[in-house]
Computed example of a mutant assay.
Amino acid sequence: MKKKAVFLLLVLTLVTLVLAGCSSKTGNTGADSASAKLKTVKIANYSGAVCFAPLYAAVEKGFFTQEGLNVELVRTDFEGTKEGLATGKIDATLGLFHKWVKPIEQGMDIKFTAGLHTGCIQVVAGNNSGITRVEDLRGKRVGVDAIGAGPMNLLAVALSRAGIDWKNEVTWKAFPPDQLETAMDKGEIDVVAVTDPYAQFIIDKNKGRLILSQAETEPYARDYCCFVAVSGKLIAKDKETAAALTRALMKASMWVNENREEAARLGVEKKYTGGTAEGNARLLAKYRYVPGVQAAREDFLKAVKDLKAAGILEVDRPETLVDKAFAPVTGEITQ
């Protein structure tokens, strides 16, 4: 009788262990299944700019997850991002319009799908340069982060409007963005044109004065500067994923609009960007985070016309380039 009781106890123990194991496996399978439902996309974070706040917020606040996406951020430079988007190895990024439009004109398979915000380029003159406005730049040396990049192209448009030949009457010098301040200190350049926060660092240290702000200077202050830039290959093979990541970034942009101080803290604390939370919050306060599709297309067309007038773009009909490069994969986001 005693042996039978021991035998039954052993059987019950084995059954309990087996059931527990099955339960554990079933639980894991459920978690794995939920994870498997998320589609992985690669998004380039190539600048660490303050204005990339919607990207950081979309990751940290779950906007990508809500759209069924598992995002892998790829840290690379602009050239790596450009090549990755063109080949389909990178699915999307946030794109400073003035930086991306020339490669698109030259045949890169990259599409804009929505606008996210206005104004993240500043032009700052050294205190001892004697420069107080764009019209004073004739014969001066301008430091930029890259030849042909967004800040240079925006300033070239402003120079053209001021009657200055930006190709021959201004000297352009390229430095890594975090070295522009040093170049100004050494007297190698008179002016800096760069995305935030680098120009703001110079202003905050009382080393220079603002002469053009894309966020505050007319006629640029209400135009989108940063768009969602998506690989044309992704749109061709999986338009819904392109739409999902566009919606996530648009929703994140709306969140930034309502939570600028928190967005600034998030960017610094999670080491997405440099600067301080307080300084970056002041910059974010200048931008208009009002994402849109149709308004972005209209701004795109207007900017293409400006770039053509300045001799930066060679396209015969601006409308043709816009039709080619703007892909409205999703509708407007209202909430």
Rank of each mutant, 00 (worst) to 15 (best):
R297E: 13
G130I: 08
G208W: 08
L8V: 04
V50E: 01
V50P: 06
I189E: 08
A20H: 10
T273K: 00
F201P: 03
E216Y: 01
N153P: 02
N128Y: 01
M184L: 15
V194G: 09
G80A: 02
D238R: 02
F78D: 00
G232D: 09
P54Q: 08
L17E: 05
P291G: 11
V11F: 10
A49M: 02
L19R: 08
E262S: 10
D196R: 01
K89Q: 13
F227R: 08
A58P: 05
G107K: 07
K207L: 11
T132Q: 09
G119I: 03
R260M: 10
A58V: 10
F78H: 07
A327D: 14
G130K: 11
V6R: 12
Y46D: 06
K308P: 00
T26L: 15
L137D: 08
G150A: 14
D306S: 07
V134G: 12
R141I: 14
T87E: 11
D145G: 14
T81N: 05
D204S: 11
I189D: 11
E135D: 15
K324H: 12
F7N: 07
S47Y: 03
I121C: 11
I235G: 09
R288Q: 14
K99N: 15
A58Q: 03
P219K: 10
V192K: 00
W166D: 02
Y46I: 02
D109V: 07
D136L: 07
V124F: 10
M254E: 09
K305C: 00
A34S: 11
A310R: 01
E135N: 14
G163Y: 02
E269V: 08
L154Q: 12
N45D: 15
T87N: 12
I333R: 09
S35Q: 14
K271P: 03
E181Y: 07
S213H: 06
Y220W: 11
R222W: 11
E240Q: 13
L116S: 09
T76K: 04
W172G: 02
K25I: 13
L234E: 06
F201K: 13
T113L: 08
L9K: 14
S129H: 13
N128V: 04
W166S: 01
A248W: 11
F326G: 05
A295V: 13
V134M: 05
R247W: 11
V123D: 07
V41S: 12
A244N: 14
Q106K: 12
K251A: 13
D316Y: 00
